[in-house]
Amino acid sequence: MSTPAEWSELAVAQVQGRTRLVASKSIQPLKILNPGAAHAACHVVLSSYGGGLVAGDDLRLRIHGGAGTRLCLSTQANTKVFKSIDGQWAAQHFAGTLEAGALAAVLPDPVVPQADSRYRQHQRWDLAPGALLLLADWWAAGRTDLGERFAFQNFTSETRISVAGRPLVLDRFHFDPAEHIATAPANFDRYETMLTVYLVGPPKRRALPRWPGPCTPSKCRCRTTRTSAWQAAPACWRWPRRAPA
């Protein structure tokens, strides 16, 4: 039985009114960089030794955003996935937690699975009420500038996001070019990349419009709308009016 891979870790916290990287642990092939910044947010860049993931790599990273922090997480370049050897997979696992009032923008460059590669990715984010997550999941068809297009063996990803312990997002994707026709209109057609963006968190509260007079069925209708994943708030709309004859 193989030994589970060790987890890398990074954590940010508020320090004298600014978000700072307070914990960092890198397990190869991952390398964590923290470029200096004059603003109050913290920018962390993920890189790797060797310029990509080889067959058998199992990169695991835990991310923690303390209360009220502001984190931008990006990558140094595209994440290249090299060809599989003996059917082995290259894998990445991310587990993130955000405390109340924290904001994280996770904006990596695309994953680029090269010919004959096999790639697996799992992401799980747990948010406290009041936290906000902007997450981009981006991958390309291969080294398209070299004419390589959907030449990998397998690509699998799973994204889970929960708020206050309540699951909100479960997005699974699997693509096998040997079984699926990549250029079919139902799949990718002429396109060569796929980008999914998730925005999870409380919306900015806006004052409701003030209607003249009491709220009556002849003037407006009221209903309850989901303004966030865990909180309901009333909203009000006018009844549509007919244009004068």
Rank of each mutant, 00 (worst) to 15 (best):
E6V: 12
Q16N: 11
Q16P: 01
Q16M: 05
G17I: 08
T19H: 01
Q28R: 14
P29W: 00
K31G: 04
G36H: 05
G36D: 07
A40W: 03
H43R: 14
H43I: 06
V44F: 07
S47L: 04
Y49G: 05
G52S: 06
G52R: 02
L53P: 01
L53K: 01
V54M: 13
V54L: 07
A55V: 07
A55R: 00
D58N: 10
R60L: 04
R60N: 03
R62N: 12
I63E: 04
I63F: 02
I63A: 06
I63V: 12
H64Q: 06
G65M: 04
G68F: 02
R70F: 00
L73E: 06
T75K: 06
F82V: 10
K83R: 13
I85W: 03
D86T: 00
D86L: 02
G87H: 13
W89Q: 11
W89M: 11
A90H: 14
A91V: 03
Q92C: 00
A95Y: 15
L98V: 12
G101D: 13
L103E: 15
A104W: 02
A105M: 06
P108Y: 13
P108V: 09
V111A: 04
V112R: 12
V112A: 13
A115W: 00
A115I: 03
Y119H: 11
R120W: 15
Q121M: 12
H122E: 07
R124A: 13
D126E: 10
L127P: 11
A128V: 04
A131M: 09
A131F: 06
L132R: 13
L133D: 09
L134P: 02
A136F: 03
A136G: 03
D137F: 08
W138P: 06
W139R: 14
A141I: 00
G142T: 00
D145A: 14
L146A: 09
R149E: 12
A151L: 11
Q153P: 05
F155R: 09
T156Y: 05
S157I: 06
T159R: 10
T159L: 11
R160V: 08
I161Y: 12
A164K: 07
P167V: 01
R172W: 08
D176R: 02
P177Y: 00
A178V: 14
E179A: 10
A184C: 02
A184K: 05
A186W: 08
N187I: 00
N187T: 00
N187S: 04
F188D: 15
R190W: 08
E192I: 12
M194F: 06
T196E: 02
T196Q: 00
V197A: 01
L199K: 11
L199E: 13
K204A: 12
R206A: 12
A207L: 12
A207K: 15
A207M: 14
P209L: 03
R210P: 04
P212D: 07
P212I: 01
C215H: 15
C215T: 07
K219Y: 02
R221Q: 03
R223Q: 14
R223H: 10
T224V: 14
A229H: 09
W230L: 12
W230T: 11
W230F: 04
Q231M: 04
A233F: 01
A235C: 14
W237T: 08
W237L: 11
P240R: 08
R242S: 05
R242M: 03
